[in-house]
Design a protein around this nucleic acid. Sequence first.
DNA 1: TTTAGGG
DNA 2: CCCTAAA
Length: 582
Amino acid sequence: MGTVVGTVEDRREMFDVSAQTRITPFSSANQIGNPVAYKLVRVAGDGRLVPATDEEILEVNEIDVSDACQSLGYLPAEGSPSRLSQLEETSEGLLRSDKVEPSTDQYSEEFLQKVEQDERLVMVSTPPDANIQCCNENNMFDEDQVHHEPLPFSSDVQNGCDVNQTNTVEPSCPKETALPASAASQKPDFALVRGEICLNDLPIKALQETFRATFGRETTVKDKTWLKRRITMGLTKSFDVPTTNLTIKDNKLVGIKDKSNDVSDDVRATNVKEAPSSSAYHVNGHSNASGRSLGVNHYWATEDFSSEERAAKRVRKPTRRYIEELETDDKSVVTSKDQRLSEKSEVRSMSVSLGKRVTVTRVVPLGGSEVEVPYVSHVRRSRPRENFMALMECHTNCLEAKGSARESNLLNSEVVSPGSVVKSASGPIQKELATSHNNTNEEYIPAEADQDMEPDHVDSSGNSSDEYNNTGAPMMQGGGLRRKHHRAWTLTEVTTLVEGVSKYGAGKWSEIKKFSFSSHSHRTSVDLKDKWRNLLRASFAQSPSNTMGSFKKHGSMHIPVEILLQVRELAEKQSLVPPNHR
DNA sequence: TTTAGGG
DNA sequence: CCCTAAA
């Protein structure tokens, strides 16, 4: 349960792969760069396998490579002798390099059945948790090999039907238990991944080699567990994340009880459009579950579902973002927003499962179709205004460290009432409460400290608009809940503001922002305006009698009296002076 | 876009 | 701070 579906590294690598695929034109396929492309083939009308066209490749590129690998007809690069023989036995030279034997419907049917059986066997024999004690050959076939050993089409077109792993399952495969790390170094030897491999016993290095042999690319990951997992997944094509992923649902969606059929359909739909149902090449694939469980979108899974899938994707997009935001707290609002907009769901969707955190998903009916959504506890920072008492309590707790909460409350109300701003006595209180509630103690307290230490330099020097340690980016979804990032005003900022106001006049926020706050990237003109408003209130609230002011220390930071006076001065002055004056 | 206000 | 209506 609760298994980690993927890791950060995981994602990165996946991206890398996909990137490669994307960038690498087919022509250069046989270069080491792209082990995937040159293996794409399709079944021509006569049943022959022909190299995929750029177009088709592009299509494939749309999807996750790893998944593509499963569903595309790959040619075994260099199967081990035994393997080949097996192939021959079972498939009886279905496809040969030069001449492809058109498969009959009967055959394919039979074949599929076989596959189905095999899969069952595999499934049965493979422990759910797939700790990969022993890997059935069936589990790992071609797909592994696919990735490496760039072979020209001509030679390997022998079969699209690696599928014929019709071979019987070999529950126990003693030989080649350990992978000689050296062996795999130069030329990936499939044997390595073919035979039974007890990953558990392998050293990291060996695991890495295995990984390489399996996926055709290097990995720097040193996490043994991760490697094992990856390899397992790669070989078995089952991400086996028992926990969640009701991806099985997808299978259902894809219809068909028979997975193999599914896959073949998929393939047909995408790569081999004109291919007859018989498609001689069929790839091993109990893939559906795997890919989808990762949240990878197979909109290409089935023609019929493509639209739905897309729709689902759109729906899921926010989800993804959601997760991201939950994970990364330091992005500025703007940044995350922009990213959101620019993100491609295809790519992003993968990450649903990234992160080292467990991703639990559930299927939720949405827009007619069911989509997977993570069981993420949405830590929304909404302000439950209804629950005033709760706020009070929280507020109290927050302030307790510093002083009496009651005092602060009292203060707040005091501050407000005398002020000319009579709008709503409760308003300010709520604000205060909400603010303190939303902020962590860390932030809240610093607000006061700020006055003294003027961390302002950080801002000006770093010009850090993005890296401010705010609470986090605002989050909005559906209900429109969000959390605000709070940045306490520093004394210098206040001073600057006052200066700006005196210089450009209140209301010229954009000016002030431009000239006086150029170094403070955050603080929009609106912020300035708001702050000024607050200062104004404060100044008027306080000045009448200093006694009041004494209470005020809590509400917000204590602004030096002089400044407040200055503020009031400016305010009065400007209010008296009609606009036309300036 | 910028302001002014309400929340 | 956020959100919006106005300008």
